[in-house]
């Protein structure tokens, strides 16, 4: 068990190293392959009227003229040991884990991410609870009442849910529920510590919008899995024991159905924790996803690298947790 966890964590670290390398390469090597010079690269971070001096200063400050492997090494060392940055004459200490400074507004990346994390986590946890309960619940009922009007309507709605993008459902929800009828506040985030009620109230729309998409998928998966499980021999055995149908479905039928769904849930949760880009954008939530969007638009490499790595960490951890849960749910899986 412990050996397994350590092995998985080791693999996770390796994965993170590869991801950071690739991201690094995309932003440093690809522009050069396209023919950009160091000066042109630096000019992007100078401002409206780049003077040669300002460009040179930027190159020095960011270390853009150093060999790329060395730049990567500096970056990695910063994460573990911290780093020092020079802004003109001023020397700034960046404590480990140092993901560097934003090229655009000179703020430190890691504290910014930490600052925005509660927003993203709130969004992700709330939405995932909703989509799990709704998706699995609807899927189970659809499966047992296969062919009924409930099944047909639910699967129709689910098909819509899978095919409608969040910027559509989100904007529709905002337009009616917020602007038109004023049931929910439009945008903004209230920290949980300030007022849990307000926190939830402000997040209801984003939660449901994000959950709708996933719930639709989970309902379809649960229905399909449940239909398969309910035709297994051991379900017949359970019925032959004289168990009430509710128990046959909820205990004997649901558990095997949940195992593959759990795997997908691990991936989805990891993805959403790494930033629900569209949802955060639509509802103007200043989470990690929105941070990434702004950074990409302005080629802010350290921010992009930082957000990518944090997202990858979430995915690796979520998958590890899921695999451990998997072994608990299904005793045949040996760890």
């Amino acid at each position: 068990m412990l050996a397994y966890i350590l092995r998985r964590l080791g693999a996770g670290v390796l994965l993170l190293a590869i991801i950071s390398l690739v991201t690094f390469a995309i932003f440093y090597i690809v522009p050069r392959l396209a023919g950009r010079t160091t000066e042109q690269l630096a000019a992007m971070y100078v401002g409206r009227a780049p003077t040669p001096e300002a460009i040179q200063a930027t190159i020095d400050r960011l270390g853009l003229d150093e060999p790329i492997p060395l730049q990567y090494w500096e970056f990695v060392r910063g994460i573990f040991m911290g780093a020092e940055y020079r802004f003109g004459r001023q020397i700034v200490e960046c404590n480990a884990p140092c993901l560097g400074y934003s090229f655009q507004d000179y703020t430190e990346v890691w504290p910014t991410i930490l600052d925005r994390l509660p927003v993203t986590v709130s969004l992700a946890i709330g939405a995932s609870v909703i989509w799990l309960i709704a998706g699995i619940g609807v899927g189970v009922v659809s499966a047992i009442k296969k062919g009924s009007w409930f099944d047909r309507v639910a699967m129709g709605v689910a098909l819509g849910g899978v095919s409608l993008p969040i910027f559509f459902t989100g904007l529709i929800a905002l337009a009616f529920l917020s602007y038109q009828w004023g049931i929910f506040p439009d945008v903004g985030y209230v920290p949980f510590t300030e007022s849990p009620a307000d926190w939830a109230y402000h997040l209801v729309l984003p939660w449901f919008t994000l959950a709708f998409l996933h719930a639709a998928l989970y309902a379809r998966l649960t229905r399909a899995g449940m239909l398969e499980t309910m035709s297994e021999d051991y379900i017949r055995t359970a019925r032959a024991k004289g168990l009430p149908e509710r128990r046959v479905v909820m205990k004997h039928g649901l558990r095997p159905t949940l195992t593959p769904i759990l795997t997908i849930f691990g991936l989805d949760l990891g993805l959403v924790l790494g930033g629900a880009v569209v949802t955060e954008q639509v509802f103007s939530l200043n989470g990690i996803g929105r941070y990434a969007v702004v950074a990409i638009a302005s080629s802010d490499l350290p921010v992009i690298l930082g957000v990518t790595l944090v997202g990858a960490v979430f995915i690796v951890l979520a998958n590890l947790v899921v695999d451990l849960l998997y072994a608990w749910i299904d005793p045949r899986v040996r760890i």
Binding site: D233, Y234, T237, H252, D330
Partner: peptide, 10 residues
Amino acid sequence: QDPMSSLHPQ
């Protein structure tokens, strides 16, 4: 008939 599949595996 089939003891391999008639017991719940979990």
